[in-house]
Every structure is written in structure tokens, then in C-alpha cells.
Write a protein that binds this DNA or RNA. Structure first.
Lengths: 336, 336
DNA sequence: ATGGATATTTCAATCGTTTGAATAAGTAGA
DNA sequence: TCTACTTATTCAAACGATTGAAATATCCAT
């Protein structure tokens, strides 16, 4: 059975498609009586409106595309969740693409979204991405572009980022306040701006406290558990008594290393991770971590899209990070 | 600047839109030379094809909708991820809706997807959903409907579900094999089919081993950590020495309860959870759990969509669950 | 009745692409 | 030279909804 169209409804009621169309979108140009008749008939015939036709005529789709490296990362799925809730309430649909961290797939995702005439694109880049010509393509097509988390600063659009600098600063200061004196860091990779910013925050906190920055305690090549474990061992041999880790998994490795050496956490060794992965609060001892706010970030990105009237082509929104103090760093039970 | 269309390209090259259209989709009816000219000009003019127009003409969109309660749940985001990878490779876009566990939003999501002329809908229901009339609407619109995880058996479509029964059976048997003799269960809520199936598997395993089923050790009201903790305490008082939990969080609570009583895990108390949440392998002692295979489930659902030619309106695919043996239940280090 | 304002509906073009049928041009065989 | 067949292109009608302008219908005051 063919799908009913407004023309079908019109025929049944001896009206024209124009009137039916207007009736269905509640135009005041249509008599109340007619509206009701149309609505009844539409329901009766199982009419579903065809958004494609409607959008084609109108020029844009009420759709926003979101591009992320991986959907099944706690962080990204929460961003999507936040964005989706805002966008849905505003009457937008959300088209999601994952790039699997591949540049090529990111380019393809942009193309796909443009083909679909999306009104906006909210994107966090794949790790491989360094060229930005695909973004220009989007900017030239008058879609609103919002970058989040992993952003390129040289693109004139709205950016939503974590306040990595202050987060790392706070974490490091927290360790200092707890009396640790040789504080190292598992800093992540310097190719990424967020890790560079965290490292800066870490350094600043040490300097502000009058402590010296020891380059030997800064490890710029670890983000996973295994290397975190290995680097932490090295650090411990250098007399390190606490670490700020730019990732939770490397922090986990560090905890293992400390335990293996027979050190007590937090008494002999303190640690704060980053991201507040959900395992951090479930382990024993529970791990302190700077919490990202992905849901909030998604909402902010969506809001930025909704507010973006093109007047402010190059703006930046920072989402604060929150230190979750837990057992792994709270040396003085009573202290704050 | 207006977007370039095939008509614009046609004019520039003194051709008709028909030829340009055919050239761009690689039709063999167009001379090689012309194709090249068209492609060059298209690139030159920054042409992006308009999928809406194309779909409108063709009748369906190359789009599949996925409806889940929450995107930011490990399980669902992995299902989406799996489905997305298969669908993308097959040239489909994925439109995602989350219902926030609300029935009303589920109905709206179905409507939205139908408006968008999706070719198929892959859905896991919200906890509130009990009425299925919105699904009939979809079935009547010749979209292919695939239910997964939380499914209604009375809908004639393809269903993809976890093999809860065998999973629970295996988990329980594993505990029995490790010499535990008073095995209880944190069974989840009996309103949900998956928990009922897990309970059945648990019971069968006991019976097959010649053990008796003690109703006092079956708790049908817990799924979260707090109640898991409370129920486990009761169970321990009744001499329970191991539990199969239908969820990881309640299992976590149970471990806490056992530790608090001074019991050693796994020597004095064994436990196996369900879902293989990522904290389970990171804690100490690591927790055994029956792993769901969400990524695989997503792939299976997508495959089912792609294969669905309507010939097999009511079929069921079960995804096996895998027991992850870890410290919390492996009493005999050497045993298998 | 009649002019005029207002309410309601119809007309007709349009959004950009696709596709069956028609046409034109070129090639081969008789 | 004529028919038969390829090959390449154009024509024209869709797909379903929207929207400005034009056309009617309705109502009111004179």
C-alpha cells in the first residue's frame, strides 16, 4: 500500500494540497473546521509527513550532525547525550558519525553531513587529523560549525573546550596541599593541545608553590595503563612521592607500580588522574581524578549552535573541570 | 553564494541535468570524456549533492534510525558503535534517538524516524514502554524493524537478544565447579524478561548439579550497589558462600558486604556479576562477570536489517554471553 | 443591491535530482 | 543507399511539500 501524501488527503476532502499543507502546520489562513477535517483524515489514512520533501522545499534540514572519534567512549557518548537533549528540545534531529580516529573517515563524515544539508556540524577531531581543508568545505557551505574538545584554533568558528590548564593546576595544588613534595606527571602526548595545557597547569602549580620543576619527573609518552606502570616505576626510583596523571588509565598503572613496591596509598604515594572514568570511584583505594563534564560540554556545544547567528565567528567556551577528591590523594583525612 | 546544483553544472557545460546526474553517479550511458568534464566542473564549482532531493525522488533514504534509552550507557553506545560500523560500510547513515527511558519520547522518536523516511529502525525499548502501537505504525510503513536486547516477543519482526539463560547457567556452573555449595543470586527485577531468563539459567544449573534451589537465597529486588550490599548481608547470614548476580553493580555491593564481614574473596566467598562493566576487571580483586557482547549485538542487528527482505518476518538471533573468569570466583588457581 | 474589507481556498511555480522514453548521431552490414 | 543497431544526449514528468499571488467566498455597512 502506497504511503498517503497531502495530495491524497486533499483529494479525499475536495481540497488542494496547499490547504492541506497549511492545515497540518497550523496556519491561521485555514478555517478551524477545515483544519479539524484534515487532521482527522490524515490520522485516518495513516499519513506521515515526508521531511525530505519538506526540507527540500525549505532549503535546510532541521538536522545537526555530530562527528566523534568513537561513540562508545564514555566521554563522547556523554557529549552526544547532552547535545542531543538540547537539540531535540529545539526540534532538531541528530545525525551521528564516528570516525574511528581515522582522518579519511572524518573527511567522509563531513561530506555525508553536507550532502544531508545539515544545519550544523558539531565535531571533535580524530587523532590522525592535522589538515583542515575538509572543515573549510563545511564553512563555505553556510553550515554552522562547532568544534569541541579536540579543536583547531585556526578555524573561525565556535570552540568548546575543557579548562585543562586550571584542572591540572587544581589537581597539582591539591597534591601539594596534601604535603607531597616530589610530584611528577604522566603528561600524555605533546602532539595534543589538551595535554600541553595540562602540563602547563601542572608546572604553574609547582612554581606558584615555590617548588622546582624537575624535567626527569615529566613523562611525555604515556596515556595507557602499561606505560603508566612503567613510567611510574622510573619516577619512584627517582624519589617521586606523588603524581598528577593526564589520564586515568595511566594513573591506574601508576597505582599498581606503587602497590607493587610496597608503598601505601595515599600515605607513601599520592595520585590524581584525569577524566574521572567510572572505575576511579569504584576501586580500592578510590582514585582522585579531575572530572571532565562531557554532558555539560555537549549541552554547551548544542547551545552554541542554536545561538550561532554568524555574528561571532570565532569564539571559545571553556568548560570547567572538577576535582573529585578521593582516597588516593587525601593524606590527611580531616584536611580539606 | 548559492549552492551549486547539477543544473548549474549542466548550464556551464551546455548539457542537461540528466546527463550531469548520470555522469556523477557513474552511469555507463555517459561518455567517458563527458564524465570527466562534469566531475572537474563539479569540483571546481564546489558542488555538493543534495541527498534530500535525491531521496525524495528515489522514495527512501539511505538512512537507518537507532532508538535507545540512553546513548551514554556503555552497553548501548557499543551497540550503536557496532551497528554504525556495519551500516556505514553498506552506505547507510545512522540517525540516533534516545528516549531517556520515557515512553512518550519513544513514540516521538518513531514518528521522527518515519518522517525522515528511514529504511529501517533498530530499537531497544524504554523501561516505561508496555504498549506497542507505535511499533505497528512503523511496521505498516514498510520500514524494516529490528528489536534488540529489550524486545517484545509479540511483534512480527527480527529480534536480537542476549543469551541470558545460558549465560547465567554458565556463571552458576562455574561457581559450582569451584566448590561453592550455598549459592545465592541477586536476580534483578522480574518485570524484565532478561532477568527472568537469567534466574532460570541459575536454577537449572543448580538442579543439574543435584543441588537444591533455596528461595531464601534468591533476591528479586536488586540491581544497584546499595541493595546488592544489603541483600548480600542477609544472604551471608544464611550461610551463603557464593552468589551469581544479574548485574555488576549489585555484585559490587555484595563484594563490599563480604569484605566487611572479614570474608576473603574468593576463598570464603565467590561472586560472578553480569555485564562485564569495565570496572570489573580493574578492581582488586578483579570481578568475574558474564560479558555481554554489545558491539557484536549491534553488528548483528545491522546485518539483520541489511538481510531483511521481509521473507522472514519473525525471527530471533541470540548473542552468546561469555564468562570472564577473574579472581572473585577462581578459588583453585590452577583449575579451569 | 453594492462596494469594500476580510477570511478562506486555489493556482502555479519551485526546491534538486532521477529516470523512462524519445531523439540524434554515428557505425556496421547488406 | 537504406535499415538496424549502438551510443550519447535531451525531454519531460515525476517525488511531496511549500508559498506568494491570484481568485473566490463571506460578511458587513451603506
Amino acid at each position: 500500500m502506497r504511503k498517503a501524501t497531502i495530495t491524497d488527503i486533499a483529494k479525499e476532502l475536495n481540497l488542494t494540497p496547499s490547504t492541506v499543507s497549511r492545515a497540518l502546520c497550523g496556519s491561521s489562513l485555514v478555517k478551524q473546521e477545515t483544519k479539524e477535517a484534515v487532521e482527522a483524515k490524515a490520522k485516518d489514512m495513516g499519513y506521515v509527513r515526508n521531511v525530505m520533501a519538506s526540507n527540500l522545499r525549505k532549503g535546510v534540514a532541521q538536522t545537526v550532525g555530530i562527528i566523534v572519534p568513537r561513540i562508545n567512549r564514555q566521554f563522547f557518548s556523554n557529549v552526544i547525550s547532552g547535545a542531543e537533549s538540547v537539540l531535540n528540545d529545539a526540534g532538531y534531529n541528530v545525525l551521528i558519525c564516528q570516525t574511528q580516529e581515522r582522518y579519511e573517515k572524518e573527511v567522509y563524515a563531513i561530506d555525508t553531513l553536507l550532502w544531508n544539508q545539515v544545519a550544523g556540524i558539531i565535531i571533535s577531531h580524530s587523532i590522525e587529523t592535522s589538515d583542515t581543508s575538509h572543515l573549510s568545505k563545511a564553512l563555505n557551505s553556510n553550515v554552522r560549525l562547532i568544534q569541541f574538545d579536540r579543536v583547531f584554533y585556526n578555524i573561525p568558528d565556535v570552540k568548546v573546550v575543557n579548562d585543562n590548564y586550571h584542572g591540572a593546576y587544581t589537581a597539582t595544588k591539591h597534591l601539594i596541599d596534601n604535603g607531597y613534595t616530589r610530584i611528577g606527571t604522566l603528561a600524555g602526548y605533546m602532539t595534543s593541545a589538551q595535554y600541553r595545557e595540562r602540563l602547563e597547569g601542572y608546572k604553574r602549580a609547582l612554581l606558584d608553590a615555590g617548588m622546582e620543576v624537575d624535567e626527569r619527573l615529566i613523562f611525555k609518552d604515556t596515556i595507557i595503563r602499561e606505560t603508566g606502570y612503567a613510567r611510574a616505576k622510573e619516577a619512584l626510583d627517582l624519589g617521586c612521592d606523588a603524581m598528577y596523571s593526564a589520564g586515568d588509565f595511566s594513573a591506574l598503572g601508576a597505582m599498581q607500580a606503587a602497590k607493587e613496591k610496597g608503598l601505601k596509598i595515599p600515605d607513601d604515594f599520592g595520585i590524581v588522574g584525569t577524566a574521572n572514568e567510572n572505575f576511579t570511584e569504584l576501586m580500592t583505594p578510590s582514585m582522585s581524578s579531575i572530572s571532565l563534564k562531557p554532558y555539560q560540554m555537549g549541552k554547551a556545544a548544542a547551545q552554541a549552535f542554536l545561538n550561532d547567528d554568524g555574528s561571532n565567528p570565532d569564539s571559545m567556551i571553556t568548560i570547567e573541570m572538577e576535582l573529585m577528591k578521593r582516597e588516593s590523594s587525601n593524606r590527611h583525612k580531616g584536611s580539606k
